[in-house]
């Protein structure tokens, strides 16, 4: 890894941590509902600098933000970690298999979907253990994730275009 890449990952991680921590302060109508705006950074990193950089930014973001917020190794951290890793992995695999098929919006939607799916799975395994409760929440979670995913995808698209133009 070249020093320019390291510098880039550090800068992008710093942005992502700032957004993630800020987002955590925002009040939301539903307690577990998050906007996922930090995913914009992951998305832009993936499209511009590749899968490895995106995964690193995600891991740094989730671990460091949780230390700053104070949820490190707690249930929220586990959900956040698995959600972030599987969402980045899903976006990365899709992007490397079909680079031209999906744009940033589609990738963002895939990321949001896998983020939710992973969190539902972890919630089922660790906390709820009632498939019925998980199934009832799933459609609402996927719908909200789709809405935030589209918005994040548009913002990510603008960000990517602006960085590329430079």
């Amino acid at each position: 890894m070249q020093s320019q890449d390291k510098y880039r990952i550090a800068l992008l991680s710093a942005y992502a941590i700032a957004i993630h921590s800020f987002e955590n302060l925002l009040p939301t109508p539903i307690p577990w509902f998050r906007l996922g705006i930090a995913n914009i950074i992951t998305l832009a990193t993936l499209v511009l600098y590749g899968f490895r950089s995106a995964m690193m930014v995600t891991l740094i973001r989730v671990i460091l933000s949780s230390i700053f917020i104070g949820t490190f190794l707690g249930p929220g951290f586990i959900m956040s970690l698995f959600g972030g890793v599987s969402s980045t992995a899903a976006m990365g695999i899709t992007f490397s298999l079909f680079p031209r098929l999906f744009g940033p919006v589609g990738l963002s939607l895939i990321g949001a979907l896998f983020h939710n799916a992973a969190q539902l799975f972890i919630a089922y395994l660790l906390f709820v253990q009632q498939i019925k409760a998980v199934l009832i929440v799933a459609p609402l979670l996927i719908l909200l994730g789709t809405i935030t995913g589209v918005v994040n995808g548009f913002i990510g698209n603008i960000l990517i275009k602006n960085i590329e133009d430079k």
Binding site: F98, L101, G103, V105, G106, P139, I142, L143
Partner: peptide, 29 residues
């Protein structure tokens, strides 16, 4: 402009699945 055809199809599919899921789940239990 940045949306590909696949993006639009995926968006439509997700909305349809989740909305019908919301309706179906209430009927299922």
């Amino acid at each position: 402009d940045g949306m590909t055809l696949a993006d639009r199809l995926l968006l439509a599919a997700l909305v349809i699945i989740s909305v019908s899921g919301l309706i179906f789940i209430k009927e299922a239990f």
